[in-house]
Amino acid sequence: PTPPYLKWAESLHSLLDDQDGIHLFRKFLKQEDCADMLDFWFACSGFRKLEANEGNEEKKVKLAKAIYKKFILDNNGIVSRQIKPATKCFIKDSLMRLHIDPAMFDQAQAEIQTMMEENTYPLFLKSDTYLEYA
C-alpha cells in the first residue's frame, strides 16, 4: 500500500484527510506563522456541518461571531489579509442581520483554500518538516 506521506503529496485534500498529515502541516504552518489559515479552513467546514435543529440557532450565531472575531475582524491577521474585501463585507453583513446560513463562510474558505493550494501546500512539500518525515 502507498505510505500516507506519499498520498499527502497528491493533493491538499488528501493531506487534510489524514490526521497525521494535518498534524505535520500544522506544525509547518506554525513555523511560518500561518497556522490560523488551517484552523480557519476547518472552522468553516465544522460550521457548515452544524445540524440545523432548533436550539442550535443560538450556538450557530455565537460560533459565527467567534469565527468572525478570531479570523476576519483584525485586518492584519493572516486569514483576513487573504480574504477579499467583498467576501468580508458579505460575512459582516450576514452577521449584522443575523442571517446565519451554513454556507456563509464558503467563499472565504475557498479563498483560503486557493491560497494554501498555490502557496503554503507546495512549500510544505518542499520543506524540511515534510522531507525529514518522509
Partner: peptide
C-alpha cells in the same frame, strides 16, 4: 457558558477526519 475559544475548538475538531 462556553467560552468562544471552546466553541471554536469544538467546531474545528468536529471537522477533522477521525483516526483510520
Amino acid at each position: 457558558i462556553d467560552s468562544e475559544d471552546d466553541l471554536l475548538q469544538e467546531c474545528i475538531s468536529s471537522a477533522m477526519p477521525k483516526k483510520k
